[in-house]
Amino acid sequence: MSDLKPGEEAVISGYTDELKYLQLMEMGCIPGEKVRLLSRAPFGDPISIQIGSYKLSIRKSEARNILVEKHSEDTRSLQQA
């Protein structure tokens, strides 16, 4: 997910390690949910994302473990990294 550009939207498809990311799921980042990368912090990291109607700040190293599927041209390809 950390590969998205600011403003880009995608859909969460899973986690690299589902068990470790219980906390993210509890905060609403569940597979199937739409996410939008809002911006990067002034020093490049963390990033802010919109899930549902709220904003989360998440470190890139943590965002890397959220797998997303982009809507656009390459719908099929899983984005990881």
């Binding site: 906390q23 993210l24 802010s48 904003k55 989360l56 700040s57 998440i58 470190r59």
Partner: peptide, 10 residues
């Protein structure tokens, strides 16, 4: 190593 630094931005 367990806790994430995810934070809500109200």
């Amino acid at each position: 190593g367990k806790s994430l630094f995810v934070m809500e931005m109200p």
